[in-house]
Amino acid sequence: MNDDHRFPEPGATDQELTDSLLEEELRQAAAVLDPVPDDLLQLALDAYALHDLDARIAELTFDSLVDALPVRGVPDAPRMLTFSAGEVTVDVEVTEDGLIGQVLPPQSARIEVLGGPQTARPVTADTLGRFTSDTPPAGPFALRLRTGAEVIVTEWLRA
């Protein structure tokens, strides 16, 4: 807060004072008329359970929403995502029908779709790390992979 001068110092002009008063009124209006919904606040509090220093994070390295050129005539192209944690890569395709994905290099893994601090749903994966889920994620999701030695969690993302 020391990088701004929003609050008038002694000797501030009337204009600055008036600006600050209006800003404070707006702040009250925001707090009263557009507060953070209580249920969201609670979800954020509960999210502390997602703090897990033992898991490796697989970062989002490709998102077709951002990185791909739009394809003409294909309005509902599936969302393609790639997550990377070191040498391990997870490719995911999100469709209306669910998720299809592949762990690379191919390896067997136990995979779950997380939907929040309390929601984890196992998906079917074969020994080559190919997996499918016939439930599309509702809201933010992450994948938790247990390979032989480690636990990898993909960055939380809104599908």
Binding site: A47, H51, P140, W156, R158
Partner: peptide, 15 residues
């Protein structure tokens, strides 16, 4: 609501 949750989930994850 989903964006808000995503932000906090990711913050917890990256904490």
């Amino acid at each position: 609501h989903e964006v808000y949750q995503t932000v906090w989930f990711r913050f917890a994850q990256h904490l």
